[in-house]
Design a protein around this nucleic acid. Structure first.
Lengths: 346, 346
DNA sequence: GTTAGCACTCGATAGAGACGAGTGCTAACA
DNA sequence: TGTTAGCACTCGTCTCTATCGAGTGCTAAC
């Protein structure tokens, strides 16, 4: 698809105008508010061409034109190329280093929604390596053990297991031995690397306490696996009411549900993490391009942040197709940049 | 306020009918669909009285009547008295004991929303005692310590602290000593009981490592305090779209925001926990009775569950004023009953 | 290739009228 | 005295129609 410069200009004008107003834009508007100095009639001819190419469409015969998904796509691609390096300041985003990453990310989601007037989502980072860093067994009560598992990136999981009454009481000495055994044999391994053979070996070393070892490994593995579902924070879901094309009851209800249930957002984050695995570029899903059914009328823009230590997550904006792509991309770039800076250890 | 039996019957008929249809109910309807055998004219007279008493009101001159907040209140009070003991079966609520309390509660919220067609909220339990049960210091890396704090009710908090480079390296022996020190002196105490004097004593006992003790206590205290904000799960927020009186954009947007931000829900849960401190009865907030501004057009019904071990939390239903109070109360009672059963240790 | 002009389309908006549910009031009845 | 039938009245809702105007495609002229 090769567009003449004039067609490109007209398409951009249509998209931009539609982004602002949300109304179909007519030939006269274009002719008046661009520096093309063309009459509306000429614009009309060009528009007819653009429509034939599937870049814009008419909601009804006597209405102006609105961009099609394909049209947005062309616009966005163009825009991304230009924006490549420019990183807008998200000035007031006061990222004083919060103690808790969770709080920070929640704050980030809120800030994102506030500054763009779209809905936002942020995923907690996922530890890609999933390597065990530390395991600790402690006695909580005479029949309860606390297992603390630390995964690469200082993600900490706890679990309490109840001991059978049959189990003989564990004395301090034994606890210490078990702890040492577990740490020396398992540290640095990922779940995939913990083979059945290794488990068997551990069990035999543990002797009478083999049952405990089994439970610990089970718990540890599950702790790590439980991390597979990305935790998602959202904000500004109610912003969808700002855009009539999303605000009707049917669509709004579905979207709200998507935001509350989060399962779809999770897979969206997942997908975008995959997609941007190598270059941490921006992903843009326009309308039907989105993997989420309920977002057929939305556009979704996502970016990936990288805290180092194998911790990567997704931030995203969900809004109407007539989204201010420029601003959204800037905001996301700034945010991911800042997150990267804050947490990347020197 | 003393109502004749006939007035009571008519009021109930109006409320019930309005709950079903959502339409103002006229005198003729009442006359036809009750066993009162009165003409519509008589009903009209009674209705005029009820309106004068502020129990029902007319949206406009030629419309039927709808219950006022006060009217709902009378109806609900009546209903609660009758329902006192009856616990409906929430038949399909398949509460196979989930491992994770979080998952279970989330599931409960979902189930609640599904079975009632209203929005639901469930708070994680709060440890009312806040007594320290166990503290564990572990070395993660040469300059990082992991603090694990267990509060009564097996609520576990973790925290990583970075050691100053100045700090001399801690050997195994010292770690053990510190752990013993912390556990012997702090276990069984609540935050309020940890006095400055106690801290000073601990510090002096710790000698050169007093700085670490300070940090640990700080972290422990903060971990516990961080628990003060109740964690809230919601489900079925989109159910508000089922009820026209809540579904207009302004109201819906505000409600959705309340559900997403959760701060208001948190204080609601808080308040209801307070209110039902002694008897774990049902709380009903009708319209303006609710402490949450955005819920002036809703009714909120909450109940408290008690897992034993000092763990209490709130479950609630948020819906239109014309809520099926009967059903909601039953559902909540069943749910809390089941939660109590599942977790209460024999 | 560009533009002016014109007939045409079609959604949006507003007003008029019909409809009907529901009321309050009055007068008659048991 | 309480209950009821009847009737005029109110007012929101729905439907229909007319009007308006933004925008188009096409043609002919520049």
């Amino acid at each position: 698809m090769n567009l003449t410069e004039r067609k490109t200009k007209i398409l951009h004008a249509i998209v931009r105008n539609y982004l602002e107003t949300g109304e179909p834009v007519g030939s006269r508007t274009i002719s008046k508010y661009t520096d093309l100095n063309l009459s509306s009639a000429t614009i009309r001819n060009e528009m007819a061409d653009l429509e034939e190419m599937g870049l814009i469409l008419q909601p009804h015969t006597s209405a102006g034109r609105i961009p099609s998904d394909k049209g947005y796509r062309v616009y966005v691609d163009e825009m991304l190329r230009e924006k490549e390096q420019e990183v807008d300041r998200m000035q007031e985003m006061l990222l004083e280093k919060e103690e808790k990453l969770e709080k920070l990310l929640q704050q980030a989601a809120r800030q994102l929604a506030l500054s763009t007037n779209y809905a936002s989502m942020v995923s907690l980072p996922r530890a890609v390596g999933n390597k065990l860093k530390f395991i600790q067994l402690s006695r909580l009560a005479h029949d309860q053990l606390l297992i603390t598992v630390v995964i690469e990136g200082n993600i900490i999981k706890n679990r309490v297991i109840d001991l059978d009454d049959l189990e003989e009481v564990l004395d301090e000495q034994t606890m210490l031995k078990l702890n040492i055994l577990l740490n020396t044999r398992l540290n640095g391994l990922s779940v995939e690397e913990i083979s059945l053979g290794l488990i068997a070996a551990l069990k035999s070393e543990a002797g009478v306490h083999s049952e405990i070892i089994a439970q610990v490994i089970d718990a540890a593995a599950e702790s790590i696996r439980a991390d597979e579902g990305l935790e998602i924070y959202t904000s500004g879901a109610n912003n969808i009411f700002r855009y009539p094309e999303l605000a009707d009851q049917q669509k709004a209800s579905e979207l709200i549900n998507t935001f509350e249930e989060k399962a779809d957002l999770r897979s969206l984050a997942e997908e975008s993490l995959q997609a941007t695995a190598e270059d941490n570029a921006i992903q843009v899903y326009i309308g039907a391009e989105s993997p989420v059914q309920t977002m057929q009328n939305c556009s979704v823009v996502t970016a990936t942040y990288d805290l180092g230590d194998g911790l990567r997550g997704t931030v995203g904006i969900i809004g109407p197709k007539r989204m201010d792509y420029d601003k959204v991309v800037s905001s996301l770039k700034t945010l991911t940049y800042q997150l990267d800076q804050i947490y990347k250890r020197a």
